[in-house]
Design a protein around this nucleic acid. Structure first.
Lengths: 170, 170
DNA sequence: CTTGGAATGTCAACAACGCTGACTTAAACT
DNA sequence: AGTTTAAGTCAGCGTTGTTGACATTCCAAG
């Protein structure tokens, strides 16, 4: 089988973590772990009329209150039509509030309502619980490595978004 | 904001990697990294009539040739109707071969054809290239931590599937 | 040998959530 | 005044997930 073929000999220090076999295991680990990552919020959302896209919108509006639609578009990496469909239902259901910009009245600034914040809490509590258990099980050094590899895996623009959110954070 | 609140005081050794803020960063890192993880195969598949579901089926059939439909169902975690739609097109297009089981003739054993293997190569080459760069950038210790955290994040059944694939591997 | 259940496949209908393309409105910039 | 930008909308389409109902095939237990 193609995956079993040998790599070039490791030069100097061990590069065994770069064999096709290790890479394949990394790929499959990503696949299975992401399923777990989304499982808990998905279960909560299944009962409501919402899906993963609503979760993502709510998460990032909570993360950066007052963000514009355009900004959210860039973070989420979807088309405005796709995002708009989600935002429309969230605004209609009273979870998100859209305010016209003060300086630039073309812009809409997005905020969670109390109800929206409540759902965000519920969803992220569930997701954090799993992440917390995984982090606790794995230990600090593993967590640092986890973060390092994930950052290296991002597209450059996504890495910028990620770091912009980090900086504006705590 | 709720995410900024304090945790219980770290007891003894540092548990700072378990603050809500760290957990949130882990969650966002997962989100952005998974986008990168799927970006390259998605680009290749967009030109064809296939999507991510086809990629997953092809990947795991290549990984475990002769696997039954039921086994694949458990690994992928979708309904048989959903998988069947994907398999039907792959079989019709000559990428996958379905053989009736010898012992149990109800079962269908799945294999990639030469053409199927060619596509699998193309897709996993692209995905491995990104993983390889990320692994090389991050270094061996980070990769070990990455794997540890991802495994801890999986649902138990998924972890079993993951490890079963590991064992049958090299 | 018949029957119950398991594995598989298929049809229909539906929902979530991506996409493109075309178009409007309003505001801002030049 | 004319162009560009931000946002919203409508229509339509594709992939991928879901349920529910039903047929077929075949193993295995009574």
């Amino acid at each position: 089988m193609a995956d079993g073929r040998m790599m070039a000999p490791p030069s100097g220090e061990s590069l065994l973590f770069l064999t096709d076999e290790h890479l394949r295991q990394g790929i499959e680990a990503m696949f299975f772990a992401y399923r777990g990552f989304t499982a808990d919020p998905d279960r909560i959302l299944a009962d409501m009329a919402y899906g993963r896209a609503h979760h993502r919108a709510i998460h990032f509006i909570n993360r950066a209150p007052g963000t514009t639609v355009n900004n959210l578009l860039n973070i989420l990496g979807v088309t405005k039509q796709s995002l708009n469909r989600v935002l429309r239902t969230l605004i209609a259901d009273g979870l998100v509030q859209s305010r016209v910009g003060r300086n630039d009245k073309r812009e809409r600034h997005l905020y969670l309502t109390d109800e929206g914040r409540a759902l965000e809490q519920k969803l992220s509590d569930a997701q954090r619980a799993r992440m917390r258990l995984a982090f606790r099980t794995a230990g600090p050094e593993a967590v640092a490595g986890f973060r390092t590899v994930l950052e290296a895996m991002m597209d450059p623009e996504m890495r910028e978004s990620f770091e912009r959110l980090r900086e504006s954070g705590p």
